[in-house]
């Protein structure tokens, strides 16, 4: 797998504030890479530097192994923060300008508009669009040059549930075509649903980087409910349980690594207990995220 983006020790100061601090990252081809962080953690600043609209204070980065420059940017489809277009121009006219800047063929305009389902409204002025349509137009614009990399910054921000679902579906579809996607978000759920890899930023510092799959591995917790009165006793004697906590009629059992809910179920059945409720609690990205943030606070 080759490297699409490599960042080395990137730093940005705004006066006395450090927005990005010694950030080093690598994104490989085909990754759907999530940049997670609370608001104000330096996500947009980082992307702004990578796209040359914000001047870095120090550090380096390279796209496709090349130093940054306008030719590199023409191969990237990117949206930062909100969709930005000329409000008095139609979707087609706006995309013509983008195509002209990127040197992309004009024939792509109709194709991308169809893809994001704006073809019917293509001659309407941008300012008449709903927020969801604006977001979709910016994705169309990012797709215009058939980019090798797409950068999306909070693409579902401010959308209703249906709009969010549509955009996510679109991102997944694009990822399936093998494109590299860099997605900044403060929504953990979003990153977990669409990303393959992610990193966590806080106040400009990198806290963690790794694959989403790894988060789903590791120790499992299982929620158990049963009519049998001796349940708690039996659970506590299970040698593969490290912890049993009662929580409003349910028991949350933490298992040792490599043991799963099915093992627990078999054990309980062998002790003559049948369960009415059995649920594996995935250790969610949210938990991991909050843990990371908490750790960094203690540090």
């Amino acid at each position: 797998m080759d490297t699409v983006l490599k960042i080395d020790n990137l730093t940005k100061h705004y006066g006395r504030i450090t927005a990005v601090k010694n950030l080093s990252l690598e994104v490989k081809r085909g990754n759907v890479f999530g940049i997670l962080g609370p608001n104000g953690s330096g996500k947009t600043t980082t992307l702004g530097i990578l796209l040359d609209v914000i001047n870095k204070t120090s550090g380096t980065f390279s796209w496709f192994g090349q130093p940054p420059g306008k030719e590199v940017r023409k191969k990237i489809g990117a949206i930062l923060e909100t969709p930005i277009f000329y409000p008095y121009l139609s979707a087609v006219k706006n995309l013509e300008i983008v195509a002209e800047i990127k040197g992309a063929p004009k024939e792509n305009i109709d194709l991308v508009l169809q893809k994001v389902e704006l073809y019917e409204r293509r001659f309407d002025k941008f300012r008449t669009y709903s927020l969801g349509m604006k977001q979709r137009l910016s994705i169309a614009s990012a797709l215009l040059c058939d980019p090798e990399v797409m950068i999306l910054d909070e693409p579902t921000n401010g959308l209703d549930p249906q709009g969010i679902a549509e955009i996510r579906e679109l991102i997944k579809q694009i990822a399936k075509e093998g494109k590299t996607i860099i997605l900044a978000s403060h929504l953990l759920d979003e990153v977990q649903k669409v990303c393959t890899h992610f990193c966590v930023l806080k106040r400009g510092t990198l806290l963690y980087t790794g694959s989403v799959e790894d988060v789903n591995k590791g120790v499992e917790s299982v929620e158990v409910m049963s009519e049998a009165p001796e349940t708690q006793e039996v659970l506590e004697t299970y040698n593969k349980a490290t912890k049993v906590v009662e929580d409003s009629g349910k028991f949350v059992v933490t298992l040792v690594e490599g043991t799963h809910a099915s093992d627990l179920n078999a054990y309980l059945f062998s002790k003559g207990i049948t369960v009415s409720h059995l649920l594996t609690q995935r250790k969610s990205l949210e938990k991991q995220f909050l843990e990371l943030l908490a750790e960094s606070d203690n540090a």
Binding site: D52, V53, K70, A78, I84, F85, Y86, P87, I101, K102
Partner: peptide, 21 residues
């Protein structure tokens, strides 16, 4: 000034213009 108020100057550069362009 429209380019600033619509932030399109920013998007133009993201899309692949240089500042000199």
């Amino acid at each position: 000034s429209n380019e600033y108020s619509y932030k399109t100057i920013r998007q133009n550069i993201i899309d692949g213009m240089s500042r000199v362009d």
